[in-house]
Design a protein around this nucleic acid. Sequence first.
DNA 1: ACGAATCCGTTGTTAAAACAACAAAAAGGA
DNA 2: TCCTTTTTGTTGTTTTAACAACGGATTCGT
Lengths: 232, 232
Amino acid sequence: MDAFSDIFVDTVFLSKTMLFSGIDPAAIEPVLHCLDASLRRYNKGNVIFSAGDKVKKIGLLLNGTASIESNDIWGNRSILDSLTAGKIFGENYAFLQDEPLMVNVVASRPCEVMFLNIRHLIEHEGCSCGPEQKLLQNLLQISARKSLHLSRRIFHTSAKTIRGRLLSYLSYQAISRGSTSFDIPYNRQELSDYLGVDRSAMSFELSKMQKEGILETKRHHFDLHRENDFME
Amino acid sequence: MDAFSDIFVDTVFLSKTMLFSGIDPAAIEPVLHCLDASLRRYNKGNVIFSAGDKVKKIGLLLNGTASIESNDIWGNRSILDSLTAGKIFGENYAFLQDEPLMVNVVASRPCEVMFLNIRHLIEHEGCSCGPEQKLLQNLLQISARKSLHLSRRIFHTSAKTIRGRLLSYLSYQAISRGSTSFDIPYNRQELSDYLGVDRSAMSFELSKMQKEGILETKRHHFDLHRENDFME
DNA sequence: ACGAATCCGTTGTTAAAACAACAAAAAGGA
DNA sequence: TCCTTTTTGTTGTTTTAACAACGGATTCGT
């Protein structure tokens, strides 16, 4: 506890996250106290939250990457979303007291996580002002944006063919970054788990698409070829 | 405009919705004014919100049913969620100014919708008290719960086989209602669009499961047979 | 009660993905 | 740098779902 008082906390970094957006860096440190902040470090593969847990604190990823995923009883993994520095997770479950986690949150690279108790932001009756009010508004924005992420994952997996799913996902990446050349946060196995298809079949499809001149790819990097009207 | 002043608005019903939960029925009418409430009626098949729209007001379903769905360029429908009386929709897009809708909201039966402008709940700086504060908290809860719905849809469609998807969906229904006998809000076509499978193939699988004694079903009604450890 | 429209189950065919197994390539560690 | 581990691409086989077409059942409107 009080784990953050003896280590360096980069309030400037925090003020740039969506959660603390609009809150003065100088005002952040006291807020962290209020939220009972604590820190923890994870290695690749470590489980941060586990399905079935009842989480009371949200996590804020300070660095590294993590993924939100679930494993069915046969061990098949589904990836719901990937997390990068500055992103929070577990907020939906923290709002909904007692709702057990359906997912695991797993470090896909070494990372540090700050845990924050946001319960009293909601429980606390009466007026709320200043940073508290702002935090609530930010949480609402984040929650809305996360829902859109989930909706998008559903779209990308609604095509019946592997190619259709790849094109849905890749063309969205191109559009949202404004470039046909981009890196994705997934390796092949992770991408196939995100799109809900078999890895080897997806690999095969990708190389077929390369032979057809639709795209070029190497590992995390993709180049979509413009003749194909991805941007619409 | 002011469309609700000349018609009966059941504030008692409203006070039981998640949105107005915890707000005194007597206090609701003035809130409706603040939120610039308006009403509209739809017939089965009518489109309430359309993909591409930029919505400024959320919808509150007063009665009837609607579904949140998307259609790809080949006309294949994906159903993301079903809406019943008291549920709100469009809130994520209303929070995120300018984000165009990815989905359609379509009346699956005749229904009435109340539209509410919640923008100023968020824009408005400074303190917030009473009903306003409560509304924000409720919205946060609802948004969190909706995210969980979307996650659940992802789980139900992560199985590779039709049977796996049916069992995932049906056993969840049984668990969440506490009974192996229940009605679902979908007909066959809608269920298959929710689970992301072909209708006829799903029908075939369902009758196979009936022959195997796993369940009984007729139209919207399902009975799961207990020998199969659905409840765990 | 009647016809029209919708919903549902069934079948056969076709297309596509899952699966398993393996080798090459790349990355990471000592 | 060398060895180990991980990641990726490739192939062949099997399983399964999509698709198309149809008839029977149910519902709805009048």
